[in-house]
Structure formats: structure tokens, C-alpha cells
């Protein structure tokens, strides 16, 4: 279960948000500039709240009153960015293996094969990210995040930089990911259709404030 209750000032903009979620997929819906990315950056530990707390299950990640701030590399929270952010100097295989190496997990070809099959990226393993399509890159970014064995996966508009055709290509993989891996997810989007297909619990955010939370019926048509 993810709990957060945070306050953060970013220049003239401010975020005050309180979220409790125990759903498999929480959809964070709002226009661009509403503060969605800042909010999940705080969950990932890339941004530090001014005040408040963030916890997963019984594990406190941030608690400003107690002076707790777990750095991002110790949170085991996966993050798939809108731009895939693959490492250009590494092959696809090395990109996928990066999280395992950094977390000093045992090498497991089973995991690699399972994720490569799930996302259909087996044929790309020996390529470099430089000349892959946007859709391929995003699938690899998903695989890379999964193979680090996260306890929560943050997806920040993973389809945001893709055209409609590519979106339709990736969406089935995201649904498979949700149904087959069991990793809880927070999915950020400004696309109501996307969220209707993926998320069970919806949180609406507007100008840094949570305006509503509940089922998918909250999403505009």
C-alpha cells in the first residue's frame, strides 16, 4: 500500500497532495503542468518533499518530521520515463541487466527470458539503443525497470512521446505487464482512454491539488 501526504514548493507552483492507494494500478490523471511528474518524482526519491511523509506498506521512505529521506537508489521503486532514457553506451542486454547488477541480485536467465518474452524484445538484445524505434525503446525501458525487481513501478506517460500507431503497439504490453507480473503500478497520464484500460483506482490532480479519487467513472469522456 502506498501512502503519501506531502507539501512541495517549486517556484511559484506548489503541490499539496495526499494519496492512499492499495489498488494494483493507480492512475494519476491531470493536464500537463498539474504536478503529476513532480508527485511521482517524490515517490521515486528524485525530489524531496518540503514537508510530509511517503511510505510503502510498513516502510517509511520520507518523513520530514523525523528527518527520514531514503535516497532513490535504495527505494527499489522502478521508474519508466516518458523518454525511455536508455543508456547509449550499453547494448540492450546490458541496459536490461543494469538494475540487477546495481542491486547485486543473482543473475537469472529465467527472469531475462520471461521479461524478454513478455515484451517481445528478445531480437533486440545485441543492438544499441541509438537506432531503435520509439516503441522498441519504451519496451526495453519497461523491461529494464522490471528486471531491477521493484516493489512499485512508476510509469510517467510512457506512451506520451509516441504516435497513435505506436501507442496501440505498446498498450497490450502494458496490460500484459499488469496482469502477469503482479508489481503494483502508479500510472501517470493525461489520456483518459489509456487510464480506463489500465487503472482500477483513479486520482485526479489539478494545479498541484488532488481534486478527486475513486473509480474510473471519474475520468472525462
Amino acid at each position: 500500500m502506498l501512502r503519501m501526504d506531502v507539501v512541495k514548493r517549486l517556484g511559484a507552483f506548489s503541490i499539496e497532495a495526499s494519496i492512499i492507494s492499495q489498488d494494483r494500478v493507480t492512475g494519476l490523471f491531470g493536464m500537463s503542468g498539474a504536478g503529476k511528474t513532480s508527485l511521482i518524482s517524490m515517490i521515486a526519491g528524485l525530489l524531496k518533499p518540503d514537508r510530509g511523509m511517503i511510505s510503502i506498506d510498513a516502510d517509511t521512505l520520507d518523513d520530514t518530521a523525523a528527518g527520514i529521506h531514503v535516497p532513490s537508489h535504495r527505494r527499489r521503486i522502478g521508474y519508466v520515463f516518458q523518454d525511455a532514457r536508455l543508456f547509449p553506451q550499453m547494448s540492450v542486454r546490458q541496459n536490461l541487466d543494469y538494475g540487477r547488477r546495481m542491486n547485486r541480485l543473482e543473475p537469472s536467465t529465467d527472469d531475462q527470458t520471461r521479461v524478454a518474452d513478455l515484451l517481445d524484445i528478445g531480437y533486440l538484445l545485441d543492438r544499441r539503443p541509438g537506432n531503435l524505434s520509439g516503441g522498441e525503446r519504451q519496451r526495453i525501458a519497461l523491461g529494464r525497470a522490471l528486471l531491477a525487481k521493484p516493489r512499485l513501478l512508476l510509469l510517467d506517460e510512457p506512451l506520451g512521446s509516441l504516435d497513435d500507431e505506436r501507442k496501440a503497439e505498446i498498450l497490450p504490453y502494458l496490460i500484459r505487464l499488469r496482469d502477469e507480473t503482479g508489481v503494483p503500478m502508479v500510472y501517470v497520464s493525461h489520456d483518459a482512454d489509456e487510464l480506463r484500460q489500465l487503472a482500477g483506482h483513479i486520482v485526479l490532480i489539478k494545479r498541484g491539488r488532488i481534486t478527486a479519487s475513486g473509480g474510473t467513472e471519474l475520468l472525462p469522456n
Partner: peptide, 8 residues
């Protein structure tokens, strides 16, 4: 940042 979220 991406590397850091992957545990580096």
C-alpha cells in the same frame, strides 16, 4: 536519474 532509480 534513471540509473539511480535502478539502484545505482
Amino acid at each position: 536519474q534513471a540509473a539511480s532509480t535502478l539502484g545505482a
